Amino acid sequence: MFLENKSILFFSAQAFGYQNEIRAEMERMGARVDYFDERPANSFAIKAAIRINRNLLARYIDRYHARIIERTKNRKYDYVFFIKGESISVENLDKIKELHPEAKLIIYHWDSIANNRNALRILPVFDRAFSFDKPDCEKLGIRFLPLFYLRDYEEIGRQEPDYRYDLMFVGTVHSDRYGLLRRVTGQIERAGGRCFAYMFFQSRILYWKMKLQNKSLRGTSVRDFRFAPLPKAGLLDLYRKSRAVIDIQHPRQTGLTMRCIETMGAKRKLITTNGHIAEYDFYDSNNILIVDRQNPVVPPGFTTSPYRDIPAEVYDCYRIDRWLETILKS
C-alpha cells in the first residue's frame, strides 16, 4: 500500500457523503487522515453566499480555517489535499504551506471552474492540480482526471441483476433537468417501461424560487420533490434494480458527472445529454445513449437490450483507489 504510514490533511465540503468515501479509501490504503469540512457551515444560506462570492463571509470563513490551522500546526503531513477549494483564502493556504513545507499541496476540481469563483485565485499556490473538466485543463494547464466509482458499484456489476425499472434518475433539480427528464421518462413509459425518479431540492425556498423562474416547474407540487438527499443504501438499491440510468449534466458543464462513472462501474446502461462522453475510452454506443437536450429521443429497446462489458483494463482505471493513486503518486 503506497500510502502506508503517510499522513494527509484533507479538506472537502460535504458532497453527498463522497468526502467520507475518499477519506475511508485513503485510510484503507494505509494513510492517517485528518479530515475537515472546507466550508464553515452547510446551511443553504452559507453555501449560497460562498458560491456567489466568498468575500461576503470572508472574516467568518478565515477564522474557521485559522482554527483548523492552529489545531494541526504541530502535526507532520505528507499531503495537503483539497477538493474544489471554494472557500479557503490564498493567505490561509500560504500559512498551511509555511507550517508544512514538506507536504505536497494538491487540489482536485470536480466542478467546472466557472462554478467556483475562488478557484483561479488559489490555483497558483498548489503543487499539483487536477480537474474532471477537459476544457478547464486545456485552458489552465492542469491535469485532466475523470471522476471515479466506489467499490459498492463494482460489487453491483458482479451481481445477478434483479430489474424492476427500465430507467432511474436520482439528482438535484436545476436548469432544464426537470422538463427534459419528463420527456425522456414519458417515452419509456408510453412504450410500456417503468421509471423511477428521485428529484431533490436543497430547500423549499429554492423550489419556490425555481418554480417562479422555470416554466417547466409551474405545474408541479412541492409534494413531487424531496428535500433531503437519498441515502447511499437507497441509491445502491436503485442501481441494483435498474437497467439504465439517466444523466442530465448542467448546461455549462462538460466534465462527466459522478453518475456517469458510477453507472459504468455498476455495468448499467446510460442515457446522457453530455456528448463529450463519446471521447472517453469506456464509451460504447451499445451501452451509452447520447440524447439532444432540445429533442431527446430514446430508440425502442435501448434500455432492455443487454449491457456489453468493456475491457477490464479500461474498467479498472476508474476505481476510486486508482483515482487516488493518480492524484497522490503523480
Rank of each mutant, 00 (worst) to 15 (best):
W110I: 08
H109P: 06
I142K: 06
P146G: 03
L140Y: 14
I142E: 12
E138A: 14
L105G: 00
Y64M: 04
R67F: 00
E138W: 03
F126N: 01
E70Y: 08
I83N: 07
G141I: 09
Y64F: 09
A119P: 02
S131N: 01
Y108T: 08
P101F: 09
E138R: 11
V80K: 02
R121M: 08
F81E: 06
K84C: 13
K139V: 05
V80N: 04
R117H: 11
R117N: 12
V90T: 13
R67M: 01
Y77T: 13
V125Q: 12
W110L: 01
D62E: 15
S87C: 13
L105Y: 07
Y60H: 11
L147H: 04
D127E: 02
W110C: 05
F126I: 09
I142V: 12
L99Y: 12
Y77D: 06
I113Q: 00
R143M: 04
L123F: 09
I142T: 10
L120V: 13
A114E: 14
A119F: 08
P135R: 01
G141K: 05
G85L: 02
R121I: 02
D133Y: 02
K84T: 13
R67D: 10
L105M: 14
E98Y: 12
D127V: 09
N92R: 15
L99T: 07
N92D: 15
L140A: 00
P124Y: 03
E138V: 13
P124G: 04
S87G: 09
D94S: 06
L140R: 07
D133V: 01
S87A: 15
I113C: 00
R63W: 06
P101Y: 07
C137Q: 05
D78E: 10
P135E: 01
I107H: 02
L120F: 00
L145G: 04
H100I: 11
F130N: 08
D127S: 09
S112T: 14
L140F: 13
L99C: 05
G85Q: 08
D94Q: 14
A66I: 05
K97I: 15
G141W: 09
N118G: 10
I69A: 10
I69H: 01
R128H: 13
Y64N: 03
F82S: 07
F126C: 03
K134F: 05
E86P: 11
L145K: 12
L99A: 08
L93M: 10
N92P: 03
Y79C: 11
Y149T: 07
P146F: 07
K97Q: 12
D111A: 03
A66Q: 12
P135S: 00
R63Y: 07
F130I: 07
H65N: 11
L150D: 14
I113A: 02
L93H: 01
R117D: 11
P101M: 08
K104S: 12
F130M: 07
H100V: 10
L145R: 15
I113Y: 00
I68P: 03
C137D: 06
E98W: 02
K84Y: 07
P124L: 00
R151F: 02
S89T: 14
S89W: 06
A129S: 15
